[in-house]
Design a protein around this nucleic acid. Structure first.
Lengths: 389, 389
DNA sequence: TTAGTTTGTCTATTGAATAAACTAAGTTTA
DNA sequence: TAAACTTAGTTTATTCAATAGACAAACTAA
């Protein structure tokens, strides 16, 4: 049955509008909100009163007068509740406890190698328990848990396949909800990363962006009209298995010439290790060598940059996004990749695409996937909260 | 300024809901609409009265009784106005006059070879004039013109570049609006085709679909959540220039190994003509030869099918759509392309993608691009009409 | 001190949806 | 065939949220 509009819905939408104005532009007075939104002053007053009642916003002291009565400033109550975001990597877990604005309150990091499925799950559960116990008191306490994970996740939060973890068919969302009795959202790590960049990172001013998660494999998170597009069944952004060289090397997926064979962290490591056989080098070693000016490594990085660009050009042609953000592990090589990536894109896209597109790298210090996952949950909570009554 | 919700907007939305129920499920009685939509009977009655007043719907004779008073059946007034759709091809113009439901009332076809820009424009204008004069009388007369054209079109309806037409920077929309004083919409031909398939073709039941227009070049129209996604600046779907063989042949776009070098009508013609040198064969000849069972042609078609599949697999990985529709000229080779396309897709996509995706071909008899363009205009008219008062 | 300004609240009005009573026009049953 | 029941559509009183505008509160400026 379609949605029919009535006064209750009108009120909900307007209340949501008032709240988002405060979230995005605080501090604001009631008068400011009325002017910005076009709502009547009285309407704003009554909606604000309800939001204060629900502890979602606060009044602070009076602001500066501009020639008349001093306004009462309103703020979003960040601390009305907290959410937990988990970035589940191939050999690490990064957990954050954030307030409703996405500020990290507590974080916990664990690294490990080759542990079992059961072990990983129990570590995840323990980290969540720790974060819950570390949460400061608040009216709504913990309002949700978000998890970003490598692999194919369907619309119901089941991890169908994660080759790099060696897992398949894990009903993650259901299991965590059973344990914690809190709404859980499980998404592909590129999707949470995309959302993290959109909300808190370099993508804040774009409504149509593609986040390219270049780690061991390559995935993409797609933001269209400000919202995550996860595909019909949830599997969008599997761009790592896009064919860019149909006569190329064989991929584990069964196909040939997949992009991630040429442009992922794995590709970089493989290339670096055949060239410098004596001892195995990791990403950190590569960065050190690049800083020292090692010619072979610099050449390898340039090659990876070129390969990255080839796939990005394909993505630009298909999506015509406003912005491309390159994130995950390879973003730490920005310094050496960026010039080549931009040069090749400049060379092989039409001038129309060039003028408007921005290419950026994630800031490696920001855990976008974890805070993006947390932000998903926070958003879901606020939406549900406004729905009530 | 954001939209604020008030009673007028509620009414508009509900009126729009009532109208769309009638459009999609006519004949319906007032009682049917109330039950389907959840709106109150009285509300439906009053909205229906206004829609009748505005000539957008009609009452017909009483329907079948189901044990009580006989219902008055309501119908969408298809003929309240008409729209014009133009499919501007490389060497043809196809114009249709449709009613507001997309039924073709009059159509006009012109084929030509190598004529100038000025000549083409004047033919387009003449066809539109003819179609306007051929329109039956109606309350709203001609409510809009839609044009689908090969090439890159920006958000303002300017044809930035059409290599196959040899045109660039044509402010099509502005010029036609100046001449006819009616709202004009200009879109890439793949976009109008996608919309045509969604509304009237094989894509009617999918809300996330990609229409692949395989003609001289290859373009794609993207429907996400039931709506056309045309990219940030309008250039999405340039998938013909997606690299599938980075060491491959050079393309006119400056890049190497573009998909349309291997899988377009042009690719088919080139291959067929090197193999059968004596006289130049066209698409019709190829179809005849294939029907006769000509081995070389059948092999060539299989090869094109395989190449088509390679690009489609990339698109599936990126978008995870519900449906892929292959249209334009190559759709007439469905019989020979389909088995190979499906076989290769089956082989090289993950099982998750296979179970849910439908691959279809356009029906060659339906002028999807023209009726899609017309439908864009019709939709814009109805939206604007409901906006008033 | 007085006039003017800005903020926020209060009150009467408007207008849309709704529930429920009502009229209209049929069918079913005794 | 009349009475009872059903369904369709209209009318009326009620509810509820937004609005306009009056008003009070608290400030600035002359």
């Amino acid at each position: 049955m379609p949605i029919t509009w009535n006064q209750q819905l009108v009120k909900k939408e307007n209340k949501s509008l008032v709240l988002s104005q405060i979230i995005n532009h605080a501090p604001l007075s009631r008068a400011d909100i009325a002017q910005r939104s076009g709502l009547n002053k009285g309407t704003v007053s009554s909606l604000v009163a309800e939001l204060i009642e629900e502890k979602l916003i606060n009044e602070s002291g009076p602001g500066e007068s501009s020639g008349g009565r001093r306004p009462v400033m309103l703020h979003f109550n960040h601390g009305a509740g907290h959410t937990i975001g988990i970035d589940l990597g191939v050999n690490y877990i990064l957990g954050v406890l954030t307030d409703l604005s996405g500020n990290i309150v507590v974080h916990k990091n664990e690294a490990y190698k080759n542990i079992s499925y059961a072990d990983t799950i129990s570590r995840v559960v323990n980290i969540i328990k720790f974060l819950i116990s570390a949460a400061p008191p608040s009216p709504y306490h913990i309002v949700g848990i978000g998890v970003g994970t490598p692999g194919i996740v369907d619309n119901k939060g089941t991890l169908l396949l994660a080759p790099n973890l060696g897992w398949h068919d894990i009903p993650f969302q259901t299991e965590l909800e059973k344990i914690f009795q809190i709404p859980v959202i499980v998404e592909n790590e590129a999707n949470t990363g995309a959302y993290g960049e959109k909300r808190f990172g370099v993508g804040q001013h774009a409504d149509n962006l593609i986040y390219i998660s270049a780690g061991i494999g390559i995935g993409a998170g797609i933001i269209i009209n400000g919202e995550l597009y996860s595909g019909f069944t949830g599997y969008s952004g599997e761009v790592g298995h896009m064919t860019i060289d149909r006569n190329g090397a064989k991929c584990t997926c069964g196909n040939k010439g997949c992009w991630e064979l040429y442009a992922s962290e794995q590709a970089l490591l493989s290339k670096a290790n055949t060239k410098n056989s004596p001892k195995e080098v990791g990403l950190d070693d590569i960065i050190s060598l690049a800083k020292e000016g090692n010619k072979e490594i610099l050449e390898t990085l340039a090659e990876i940059g070129e390969n990255l660009a080839v796939g990005i050009i394909n993505i630009i042609h298909a999506f015509n996004p406003e912005q491309i953000i390159i994130g995950n592990r390879l973003a730490s090589c920005k310094q050496w990749l960026e010039p080549k990536v931009k040069e090749v894109i400049q060379q092989y896209t039409s001038p129309f695409n060039q003028t408007d597109i921005r290419i950026d790298f994630s800031s490696p210090s920001m855990p976008v996937s974890a805070i993006g996952a947390a932000a998903f949950s926070a958003e879901a909570f606020l939406k549900a909260q406004l729905e009530i009554k």
